[in-house]
Design a binder for these strands. Structure first.
Length: 107
DNA sequence: GCCAATACGCGTCAGGGGCA
DNA sequence: TGCCCCTGACGCGTATTGGC
């Protein structure tokens, strides 16, 4: 498994994707004949159609996986926000306490 | 119950990046 | 340099929601 690093020019899209090995073809996919074995225009057209369908099918699955990862990433960010909010609240409370302790009494 | 607005998921295309 | 993968953007269909 290798890591796919997105080069984000804007910096707002993170590098949350991990590239999984894609060795197996989906069920029902038949590998195309080698180009050398094609002759007639009809065979060429069939080959082109097959390639297009294969590409579409792979892209369909890739898009699903991409959306799944993105959802996961957003969930992760949301839970991090929740943790940081709690942490922030605690720090504010602590600051108020310290202020009370350190401020001179005026009476 | 009906309808418009909004949310959500899907399929596809286009374009960029990595790799042999 | 061509091939492949990933992902943003777009359009479309369906589900959900809020107002009437």
């Amino acid at each position: 498994m290798n890591i796919y690093l997105k080069n984000s020019a804007t910096g707002d899209m993170p590098t949350y994707q991990i590239r999984a090995p894609t060795t197996a073809l989906p069920q029902g996919v038949v590998m195309a004949a080698s180009p050398g074995s094609l002759h007639s225009p009809q065979q060429l057209a069939e080959e082109a159609t097959r390639k297009r369908e294969l590409r579409l099918m792979k892209n369909r699955e890739a898009a699903k996986e991409c959306r799944r990862r993105k959802k996961e990433y957003v969930k992760c960010l949301e839970s991090r926000v929740a943790v940081l909010e709690v942490q922030n609240k605690k720090l504010i409370e602590e600051l108020e306490t310290l202020k009370d302790i350190c401020s001179p009494k005026t009476d």
